[in-house]
Structures are given as structure tokens and as C-alpha cells.
Amino acid sequence: MSSRTIAGAVIDVDAEGFMTQSTQWTPEIAIALSNELGIAPLTDAHWRVLTFARDDTAKHGQSPGPRRIVAGAGVTMKELYALFPKGPGKLVARLAGVPKPKSCL
């Protein structure tokens, strides 16, 4: 685990870059990360997915995989992959400041 500075804030991240302290997250961090990861600009649909991922993680103590996101965030699987083409399984969690999902689905 290490820390880094992004969008004017210091955040704790694990070896793969996932934030380890969800409370350190701000929307500005998500925007900065979206630039780094080639996802920017973030649309309303992106934010809907990120908000769902954060709420769902807070409620269930586990970050959601794509299938759960599709069931709860009002996007289809195809749309989710269009929003995060380089892999929604990891990228949603990276941007939402939640752990890497343990779900295989």
C-alpha cells in the first residue's frame, strides 16, 4: 500500500491502484483518474454507474461486479462496456474509490 497525490488530495492506494480508504474519495478524484485511464469525459451514465458502485459497496461491504451494476444502475451490459471499454470489472471500482470486486460476474 502507498499513497499518492491526485486532484489536490492525498489518497491511499493498493498495488493495483485501487483506493483503500473510500472516505478519501471526491468526484474530482474520479475526474482526474478518468483522464489518467483514458475514460474521460465522464457522462451522466458514467456518474450513475459510479454512484451506484459507491452506494452498493457502502450497503453490502463488497464492491459490485458488472452483473450487479447492470441490475442496479440502469445501464445494459453492452452500455456498461461502451462506457468502460477497457474493462468495467476493474475500472468502475478504480474510479469509484472502492476495492477491486471479488465477484466473477
Binding site: G65, P66, Y81, P85, K86, G87, P88, G89, K90, L91, C104, L105
Partner: peptide, 12 residues
């Protein structure tokens, strides 16, 4: 099927 899906989830 699960492995192929995991690959796509990870951007592979």
C-alpha cells in the same frame, strides 16, 4: 464461460 467473462471484465 466464466473465464471468458472474467477476461472481458478485466479488459482482456
Amino acid at each position: 464461460l466464466i473465464l471468458a467473462n472474467a477476461a472481458r471484465m478485466a479488459g482482456v
